[in-house]
């Protein structure tokens, strides 16, 4: 076995040609999670499309990505071949963990994929529409228990935003944080909680099988093929996308930033990447340049406001 390993490594090492930009991608999470998968998919696509020759993935897990971003900002400063994967979860984690390093300390390049949040109830529930649910929430906020991911995460933020939009005191929401999507979903299916919040992908197969009732999505406009209104259509001004992005190191020159943006654009349009998106079921929400910067700034200020309202950030 050992000989087989060594032989393949040596063969691999000899076969690699040198490229100008050998990117190193940091996944600020443990192997296996969403950010890690994004980083490794980027690695494969960059190599297969010959945009970069030898791409390394580095895992720095911990605290919603705040450990990774801190290390990235300090160690990769000024390096034009360092990339980092990140996402909306980081925005909240930076605020709740009072991270000294924020997204301002790196160079965001582009949003790559994203998912919308969904609000569901068990099929057996007497709640039929999002209006019914909000009416119940208004009547007695404590009696509506919301099952979702960790406190201060995207799911919690959505409930806070909805409560605010519906005129309910966000500190009064009865949010039950579960560890991991599986546990939350089980609690929702078992009618342990009144309603559930998570990204639509987590609920999709249950909704199609009729075990969960989809009440609303947090998209800005109706999604094709999904039979549910958006929150906006239902009269609550809430739009939330749980996106993933790629960022570069701080302290880059304008040309260096442009070169990376060019590479990423090439990547996003490539066949390999589009196929990856399809097999993984990720939606292409590519957004770069100033449009992305503006969206990011908007997301950060909205998130900070709602986390303060819920009482998680002072």
């Amino acid at each position: 076995m050992k000989h087989f390993f060594l032989a393949s490594i040596l063969a691999g090492a000899l076969a690699l040609p040198a490229y100008a930009a050998d990117y190193t991608i940091m996944a600020p999470a443990a192997p296996g999670g969403g950010w890690d998968q994004t980083a490794r998919s980027l690695q494969t696509a960059l190599q297969q499309e010959k945009i970069s020759g030898n791409v390394q993935v580095m895992n720095v897990p911990g605290a919603g990505g705040t450990i990774g971003i801190a290390q990235f900002a300090s160690q990769q400063k000024g390096k034009p071949n360092a990339l980092m994967v990140g996402g909306y979860v980081m925005v909240g984690a930076i605020l709740t963990n009072k991270s000294p390093v924020t997204l301002k300390d790196v160079t965001p390049i582009a949003r790559l994929t994203g998912e919308y949040e969904a609000i569901v109830v068990p099929a057996s529930s007497d709640i039929k529409t999002i209006g019914d649910l909000v009416a119940k929430l208004k009547a007695n906020p404590g009696a509506v228990s919301w099952g979702g991911g960790s406190a201060g995460g995207t799911d919690h933020i959505l409930v806070g935003l909805l409560a605010k939009a519906a005129g309910v005191d966000p500190t009064k929401i009865n949010y039950i944080a579960f560890s991991g999507g599986g546990e939350a979903l089980a609690a929702i299916l078992g009618s342990q909680v009144t309603a559930g919040v998570s990204s639509y992908g987590e609920f999709e197969s249950q909704v199609k099988a009729g075990t969960l009732r989809l009440l609303a999505l947090s998209a800005d406009k109706k999604i094709e093929g999904v039979d549910a209104p958006t929150l906006k259509e239902s009269g609550f001004d809430v739009v939330l996308q749980n996106w993933r992005m790629v960022a570069a190191a701080p302290g880059l020159s304008a040309e260096q930033k442009k070169a990376i943006q060019g590479d990423v654009e090439k990547l996003v349009k490539s066949k390999t990447w589009q196929e990856t998106l399809k097999t993984k079921g990720w939606a292409d929400t590519y957004l770069s340049g100033e449009a992305f910067d503006a969206q990011l700034a908007k997301d950060i200020s909205a998130t900070e406001a709602v986390l303060k309202d819920i009482g998680l950030v002072k």
């Binding site: 911990g62 605290a63 450990i67 963990n97 944080a177």
Partner: peptide, 18 residues
């Protein structure tokens, strides 16, 4: 981090302990 309230406990400001 306390999963239910998002507050950190006994981590003494060390991010690796969060």
């Amino acid at each position: 981090i306390d999963q239910l309230t998002g507050q950190n406990r006994l981590s003494f400001g060390i991010p690796d302990l969060l």
